[in-house]
Structures are given as structure tokens and as C-alpha cells.
Amino acid sequence: MSDEISYQNQDLITNNPFTPRGQGSPEGTPIPNKFALPKDPKVRLLIILSAVVVILLLLSTIVTTVRQSTRNTTPVKVARVTQAPQPTDVPNTSNFPQDLKDQFDAADKNTQKQVNFDPPQIDNSIGL
């Protein structure tokens, strides 16, 4: 015996056009999930590819940000003048003949000289 109560008006579940899909239907059609992919294969492919592109964009942004922050902390390499490491047992020239000693002293002095006469830091856009 059916529990269904039959009515003679449009509130009848089976004839009511305003009832949501699946409700009152004798077959009990399940409510489709609005987040499910559409059935059209082309649309599905488009959505999947768009998602891949978005993910790649996000990843590239993250990687660029990480690289930039690393680059900012790394000091800029500047050409530095460094002397060769001196041997720990540097020969003592005090026992050398005087003329040789003087020559060695003059040569040592020259190797320690550095050119420190940098040009002035000027703004070449004054007046522009």
C-alpha cells in the first residue's frame, strides 16, 4: 500500500515543476554534485589544462620569489686584490750582502704598493 497521498492540484510532487530535481521523483534521481566535471570531454580537457597552467604559474612565482630573496642576500662579487700567501719560513735577508739586501727591500716595497686613487663619485645627471 502506497504512502503517497494524491492531490488534485499542482502541489503534487510528481507534477510540481518547482520541486528540485530528484525530490519526489519516484526513481530518486541523485542530486548531481555541482563540483563534478561536466560530461563534455572537451570542456573537461579545458578545465584540466587550465588547472595545470594555474599550478605552474603559482610554482614559478614561488620559485622566483625564493631565488630573488637568495640573490639579495648574496654579496656582489668585487674584484679584490689579494697577495699570494707568504711562506711561513720567509728567508731572513739580514745575512745577505748589503747591495742585495737593499735591492730585495726595494722590490718588496714595490710589491706592497697598491694603486688607491679612485676617481670621484659624481652625479652625471645634474641639470637633467
Binding site: T82, Q83, V90, T111
Partner: peptide, 9 residues
Amino acid sequence: NNYLIEIIG
């Protein structure tokens, strides 16, 4: 300059 220092040494 480094070569010169080595030669002197």
C-alpha cells in the same frame, strides 16, 4: 703581483 712575490721569495 703575486707572481712577482713568488719570484722574490
